[in-house]
Design a binder for these strands. Sequence first.
DNA 1: TATTGTTATACTCTATAACTATA
DNA 2: TATAGTTATAGAGTATAACAATA
Lengths: 199, 199
Amino acid sequence: MSSGHSIPPRRRSPAAPPFQDGPVRVAANVPPLRRATTALARRFHQICTTIVSESLAEADLTPLEFGVLAYLNPRDGEPGIDQNGLAVRLGIERSHVSMLVEALGARGLLDRHVNGEDRRARVLRLTRKGGALYNRVLPGNVAANDRVLAPLASRERKLLHELLIRVIEHNAEYARPGIKRRRRATRPAAADGPRSSLE
Amino acid sequence: MSSGHSIPPRRRSPAAPPFQDGPVRVAANVPPLRRATTALARRFHQICTTIVSESLAEADLTPLEFGVLAYLNPRDGEPGIDQNGLAVRLGIERSHVSMLVEALGARGLLDRHVNGEDRRARVLRLTRKGGALYNRVLPGNVAANDRVLAPLASRERKLLHELLIRVIEHNAEYARPGIKRRRRATRPAAADGPRSSLE
DNA sequence: TATTGTTATACTCTATAACTATA
DNA sequence: TATAGTTATAGAGTATAACAATA
């Protein structure tokens, strides 16, 4: 209805630098970046998944599926852990592991065996095919991860990793699922305020 | 079928440290953490969203919705940007902004006005209610973000932020949507390998 | 009773695509 | 033709809950 006239001209390049609490900006055409840790974490994660997904696409793996292979690979990993162990390591729910492992098992990439000591548990192991896939995909994955940190000097990359590891390990209690998310207040749409005016 | 006997005993605490390429581990009961940058990014982001979601729960906001308020707040932000501008800043799709803004508008937290200069664009502004909510929630949000970095010294926090900002700004091309994700090869379930053996 | 895993269901985040209105 | 926004749909990631089998 309103013709939008009470609106000041757009401020695409505002005079005052936004989010003054952080260090100043650098790149030219890059829009202001919020300094909040969570915002940085999201963008950082976003970059990683975008770049790494590319490196995994030809193997038809998601980053998380690759994580499963990594945790089970015989060279570095811990073949023989059970699904709960994998859930803790990946920081995801048991039910999620169940689905992941089912999908990878269906592709013949890993085996589940009942543990003789505790018949409730499923012991996980890569098949030869799974191990071969991991070995084939690993170099590209490492390269992709390196590409993310390319703007940093070698010493800085190491430093970033160390800082992240400390933050993660000290927040272990939050670095896992099971924390109840906010329960969305099943809003009946526009239940808590007047409609916004849109012409 | 198999009774699981060909399986070696579980190796919950393997002798060799996994993922040798990274620095050694610290905390006792914390399971091995993959050193890959992407894995660290995921856990870091997970911690942030868990902690920050808690601080936003009483306002019934998601971290991303809070981000919208932050980018539009009159003190620090850029009130008057349009939806595309917001999409670029948040690093999400225009369609996603559309939904976010619709939900916040329905709650009376922001206004959309047609831009007089370009009637295609929607100029965004917090309502008084939206501004008040932002102000009310901000302190808790800042505290939540600080809590994430509590294990770091003040100098280290600053350093971590700087490193992340550099990585994000130099990877701007990947820190946005629109990159085609891998197209899942619509697997007909178990199409590419023998079934795993599970008793 | 407690724990491992499964299944069903659902929500958040985010993308793609097709569409409308405007430029 | 190109751009701003909307709508519909989908899929990745992840959660909750109820359940079965085993301890």
